[in-house]
Design a protein around this nucleic acid. Structure first.
Lengths: 251, 251
DNA sequence: CGAGCCCTTGAAACTCGTCAATGATCGTGG
DNA sequence: CCACGATCATTGACGAGTTTCAAGGGCTCG
C-alpha cells in the first residue's frame, strides 16, 4: 500500500514523529481527510462564542487562533499549519473562548466528532492526538516566555526558528528556507508589538545577515547563529531526533 | 456519607463546577488524597529535564510553572492553586520542558500514574480532568493576550480578577478578598515586567482605590470597576453560573 | 490606470527597565 | 527581649525600547 499520507498527508507526517503507527492506523488517519474545503485568506473558520460540532484540520496554508480586544487590537495566540487540529476542545467545552481564522488561503477539513471518537479507540492514535495537544500547550507556554521576557529582535528570531522546525516536521521546509505567508502586521499582532516596530526589527535581522524575507519567502541564512541569538531550545516541541535533523523534503 | 471533599477538598470543589459526580466518583476522588506532603516555600517540585513518574496535586498554598532563561531571568507561566494538577502530562511526554516550584508553603500530594489511570475509567471523572486541562490551556492563552496586549496596569487588574474567580471556585476567597502569598517580585516575573515597575503600578491601583494589598492579603475594593478596567471576561475559565456567582465560603 | 494594501521612514512622546540607595518587615539567635 | 541579617517594598534619576502619528512609496489586482 502507498498511502498519500506517507508522502503528502501532513497530519500523518506530524504524528509519525511522536508514535509509530500500524498500516491500519495509517489507513484510518488518511481516510479522515475527505471533503477538503478551500478557504480564502483572512476568513474566519470559527468565532468566539460559537458552539461548534466538527473538528477542523488544516491541510495547507496558515491559520491562527486569535482574540480581539475591545479597542480593536487583534491578538494572535497560535499559528496553525498543515497537520494541525484547530479545535479538539469541541468534545468537552460547549463554547469557543476564541476565534480561528485563515491567514493565507487554506485547505481545511471538517471532521465530525463521531469520526474522532472512532479514531480514539485505537491506542496509538489516541496517544498521538494526546501528545499533539500537549505540544500545542507547551508551545503556548514558550510563546508566553518569548513575549514576556525577550526583546523584540530575539523574540522574532525565536519564532522564526520554531516555525522552521514545525514546518520541517510536516515536510514544508526546504533546507533552511520556507514559505511564510504572513504580513508584517500579522507578525506584529503575534508578537505583541506594533507593525512599525516589527518592520524595523526585521530590517535589523536582515542587516545582520541572519535572514532574508521577501515575497513571503523566508530564508534563514545562519540557523545556528539565529538559534543562539533567539535563545531557541526546541525541547518543548518534543520532536524525535529524526524529525529534528530532517532537512525537510525540499523540492 | 460526608466526604471531606464536599467541604474541604479543593480538587473536588473545583471539578464539581464542571461535571456532576456520583457518590462513588466523589469517594474515589477523595481517596486520591493520601500522604500529603508539606513543602516549604520556594522549593522545586520537579525540574526541567526530569522524567517524573507521579502526578502532583496542590492541596494548599501557591505553586507555579516556570522557566529560567540563560540570563537568569525567571519566567512564571502559571499559578497552581489548591485543586490544580501540576503535571498530567506525565503520561505521554517523557521529559519535563519546564519546572514546578512552590511559592508559598504548600501541601502537595504525589499520585502514582496507575491511580490516575484507574480514575480515568470513570467517564465523569475523565471528562472533568479533560475539562480542567483545557481550562488550563485557555488560561495560558488568556495570559498570552494579557501580556502581549495590555499595559502594565490593566494587566495586573486582569490577573487579580482571574485569581479571585479561581480561588472562589475552590472556596478560598472571602467575598472580594483573598490571600495572595506572593511577593511583588513573583508578580513581576509573572507579568513580564521589572519588580520596580510592578511596585509603582500596584501603588497606582491602590491610589485609584481599586485594591488594597498588605501582608499578602488582597482586597478588591470595587470588583466591577477593576473588571472593566482590566477588561476581564471570565468566559475562558468555563465556570458554571453557580461557581461564578459564589461568594466563596469565606470564614 | 486607479484603489487598496503593504512596506518603509521620520520625529516626538511615553512606557518601562536599569541602577542605586533607603526604609520597612520578619524571623533568628544571642 | 533586643540586635542582627535577610528579604521585601519603596523611591529617584536616567536611558533604552517601543508606540503613536503621519506621510510617502511600491506592488498587485481589478
Amino acid at each position: 500500500m502507498n498511502f498519500r499520507g506517507v508522502v503528502g498527508n501532513p497530519l500523518i507526517e506530524k504524528l509519525r514523529a511522536f508514535v509509530p503507527f500500524t498500516e491500519e492506523d495509517l489507513r484510518m488517519l488518511d481516510e479522515l481527510v475527505v471533503a477538503e474545503r478551500e478557504v480564502e485568506a483572512r476568513t474566519d473558520i470559527i468565532q468566539e462564542g460559537d458552539k461548534p460540532s466538527d473538528v477542523h484540520l488544516v491541510m495547507s496554508g496558515f491559520a491562527c487562533r486569535y482574540k480581539v480586544l475591545p479597542g480593536g487590537k487583534r491578538n494572535i495566540m497560535a499559528y496553525l499549519i498543515p497537520g494541525d487540529f484547530c479545535d479538539l476542545h469541541v468534545f468537552v467545552l460547549n463554547e469557543m473562548d476564541h476565534s480561528l481564522a485563515t491567514l493565507s488561503p487554506c485547505r481545511v477539513v471538517a471532521i465530525p466528532r463521531a469520526r474522532i471518537l472512532q479514531l480514539l479507540e485505537r491506542p496509538a492514535i489516541a496517544k498521538a492526538f494526546w501528545i499533539a495537544a500537549l505540544v500545542d500547550e507547551a508551545t503556548l507556554r514558550e510563546w508566553l516566555v518569548n513575549i514576556g521576557s525577550r526583546p523584540a529582535e530575539e523574540r522574532i528570531a525565536h519564532l522564526l526558528c520554531e516555525m522552521l522546525l514545525r514546518l520541517r516536521a510536516v515536510g514544508l521546509a526546504n533546507g533552511d528556507r520556507y514559505e511564510l505567508p504572513l504580513t508584517q502586521n500579522d507578525l506584529a499582532d503575534t508578537m505583541g508589538m506594533s507593525s512599525v516596530h516589527m518592520n524595523r526589527v526585521l530590517q535589523q535581522l536582515r542587516g545582520e545577515k541572519l535572514i532574508e524575507f521577501q515575497q513571503h519567502n523566508l530564508v534563514i541564512l545562519d540557523f545556528e547563529r539565529l538559534r543562539e541569538f533567539g535563545n531557541f531550545n526546541p525541547n518543548y516541541l518534543h520532536l524525535t531526533q529524526r524529525a529534528l535533523a530532517a532537512n525537510g523534503n525540499g523540492v
